[in-house]
Amino acid sequence: MQVKDLQTPLANHFKLTPEEVNAIYNSGNGNVFRDRISWALSYLFMAKLIEKPRRGEYVISQMGKEMIASCNEEQINAFINKAVNKPKATTENVTTPTDATNPVEATELTPQEALNNSFEDIKQSIKTDLLATILSKKPQAFEILVVDLLQAMGYGGEIKNAGVVTQLSNDGGIDGIIKEDVLGFNHISIQAKRYAEDNHVSRKEVQAFVGAVAGTPSKKGVFITTSSYTKGAIEYVESLNGSPIIILINGEQLTEYIYECGLGLQTERVLKVMKLDRDYWDTMLDE
């Protein structure tokens, strides 16, 4: 029996929805449900409860048959945990990784899922620290930050000094610009609001920015805040239908972009996780 042969009966047994069966990691690196089956088979093989007569195929071993006949589920799980030196789960109904688009409930996490969860926890902690640090700085520093961020994201290309923070006394509602060509005929206008989490950007503030952007040749603008936007502000931008083009970025999106660009961050550690190259091993003859 192969992994693909187990998917349907296991999905039926656990009464999984199509969304749970097809859930993938946000990284795009594989299907969560199929990954869980593969890990379960690995544990069973390590505990000698199944055998692999050839690559990719599994059959229950004599020991496995004897355990099914004489032991209950809890005893079998305890035996497997001990065999693979895996600590017993201390919590019940733990959900599959936050990296999955549609979590699948289970009692334990696979090593890959635990690693993904740890990564997401660390990432969220850093993003929280980022937001707190930004709020501790002056508004002018935030304007510099968002200009640096857009350049780090690739806007402005190879143009030297593409990002500019406007003068405070004469910014006309625009805090910065990103030049998209050498002479500056085309550019992106930026509005930056360093607001506390509960201080949402209103429709009136967005409208003022739209008016300023509408007067520029490019008619393209990005409004960035550390908080969020009111429903009215979001609906107003949607009603513009791209004339002018306005992008709203809230605090959550802001810290995500900063994290992904590594702006103001240092790499603490790089983990190299390996897996079998199936194409390589498939060229060798099976015994």
Rank of each mutant, 00 (worst) to 15 (best):
M1E: 03
Q2F: 07
K4E: 09
L6A: 08
L6Q: 09
Q7G: 00
L10N: 05
L10R: 10
H13L: 15
F14K: 07
P18C: 10
E20D: 10
E20L: 07
N22C: 02
Y25S: 04
N26A: 13
R36H: 07
S38C: 09
S42E: 04
Y43G: 07
L44W: 01
L44A: 03
M46S: 07
A47V: 04
K48M: 02
K48D: 15
L49D: 01
E51P: 00
K52I: 09
E57F: 12
Y58M: 04
M63V: 06
M67I: 12
N72S: 11
E74Q: 14
Q75S: 06
Q75C: 01
K82S: 11
K82T: 15
A83P: 12
P87G: 08
T95S: 06
T96N: 11
T98W: 06
V104P: 08
V104Q: 05
P111V: 04
Q112H: 06
A114C: 11
N116K: 09
F119H: 09
D121V: 14
I122Q: 06
K123P: 13
Q124C: 12
T128S: 14
T128R: 13
A132G: 05
A132K: 12
T133N: 14
S136A: 13
K138E: 09
P139H: 01
P139Y: 01
A141F: 14
F142E: 03
I144V: 15
L145N: 04
V147P: 07
Y155V: 01
N161P: 08
A162H: 08
V165N: 00
V165R: 08
T166D: 00
L168W: 01
D171T: 01
Q191S: 12
A192N: 02
A192P: 03
K193L: 06
R194C: 13
E197A: 13
E197L: 13
D198G: 13
G211N: 15
P217F: 03
P217N: 10
G221H: 05
I224V: 15
T225P: 01
S228V: 03
S239E: 12
G242T: 03
S243H: 07
S243V: 05
I247T: 10
L248F: 11
L248G: 10
Q253F: 07
L254Q: 10
C261I: 05
L263R: 06
E268Y: 08
V270A: 07
L271A: 06
V273A: 12
V273G: 09
K275V: 07
L276E: 08
Y280K: 14
Y280S: 08
D286T: 11
E287S: 05
